[in-house]
Design a protein around this nucleic acid. Structure first.
Lengths: 197, 197
DNA sequence: GTATAAACTTACCACTTGGTAAGTTGTCAA
DNA sequence: TTGACAACTTACCAAGTGGTAAGTTTATAC
């Protein structure tokens, strides 16, 4: 089962994912998600039992998507793989914000709710890939991880700030910012071809 | 008025700020905030009229705090001011997460709600300060802003991930990460003393 | 002493929330 | 034809939400 992309179950998860991303867990309501799907909220409860479990499935699907985005990245050497991964992440984060929002919301809510860390497989895979590059092969895990996290952080922060930046400085100014931001990211990733420090 | 730090009004805002930061706007309830204060929710409604306006005041107070954190930074040259500001921001973000959470939540919610951008004065002041440094005096606004935003982004992202990182890798590993993170920040800020590219 | 006003509380209301229970509909196998 | 099961819907409920209205207490001004 679940082989069809249009399976109702996965369809529900996709829509729920979008609503949770936009509004956050508490602001999103089962009735609201169901409305978007053209069903009643009991259809959701039938499949997932509770709002909390629906959210778990949303995070689990997110985790899979993140992991696959590393596994499926194109490139022959670890260096090119890692570089194209970050550039693709930056682009995806900007034109398809929802996953980025989900991650940020999960991080914020983890402060109070103890969760099952859906991002761990993703981060571990990313760390393993980076570790294969010459630049980071001899670095400590902490140094490597901080470098990764710094890049993800600036990408995520910029993507989430999109609306605010457009509102504050206008769309034209934001477009300039966006290009500059990606240019700076490319420059930072150029270090990957160099030798370790 | 409001000259006492213990003025009920400011006391309410402080507590509301903490609850909004931890739970987010929708998950926080007036009754919950009032409980922490030992009053009824009508005490809050008496002062602020509505939940939305209380939240506005919380964001406005946050905006003031952020702006003052730049104005009051110690140092003689713009370079040292900017460097100590970022280092202080990094430390504050880690040991006092609430403001960081508030900012992140405001950015996320801005996606749907059009707001009045409480962070603009802060960012503008920071930009003006950075523009005085030799390193950035001749750079374009976009380049300068991206550099600022990149630093803020990695600081904020790391601070917000605190709980998750501790949960995933343990407290000891996190402490190593934390020191490495700050060391890398210091290294990045060392560029300020150099000449422009 | 009395009036005024600020800082609350108690009581209440309309509405939304997640969740339960009990049906209904359609499909498909025996 | 019948039975079984999945995929729903309608009806309902207790709890919680923000908000209104009408008191009550307390301090201060005159």
């Amino acid at each position: 089962m679940d082989q069809h992309a249009e399976s109702p179950r996965t369809r529900y998860i996709t829509t729920a994912s979008a609503v949770f991303a936009q509004k956050g867990y508490h602001a999103a309501s089962l009735a609201g998600i169901a409305d978007r799907l053209g069903v009643t909220k009991q259809a959701l409860l039938h499949f997932f039992g509770s709002k909390a479990r629906l959210y778990e499935e949303v995070l689990s699907a997110l985790s899979d998507r993140l992991l696959r985005s590393i596994e499926n990245v194109e490139g022959t050497t670890p260096e090119t793989k890692l570089r194209t991964f970050f550039l693709q992440l930056s682009e995806d984060a900007l034109c398809n914000v929802e996953d980025t929002q989900l991650v940020a919301r999960a991080l914020l809510d983890a402060q109070t709710t103890s969760e099952n860390w859906p991002m761990k497989p993703f981060l571990d895979a990313l760390g393993a890939l980076a570790h294969k590059t010459k630049r980071w092969s001899k670095a400590s895990d902490a140094e490597l991880f901080c470098w990764i996290y710094q890049n993800i952080g600036s990408i995520q922060h910029f993507a989430i700030s999109q609306t605010t930046l457009k509102g504050m400085y206008g769309k034209e100014a934001f477009d300039v910012l966006k290009e500059t931001h990606q240019a700076q990211l490319r420059a930072a990733l150029a270090d990957l071809e160099e030798d370790p420090v």
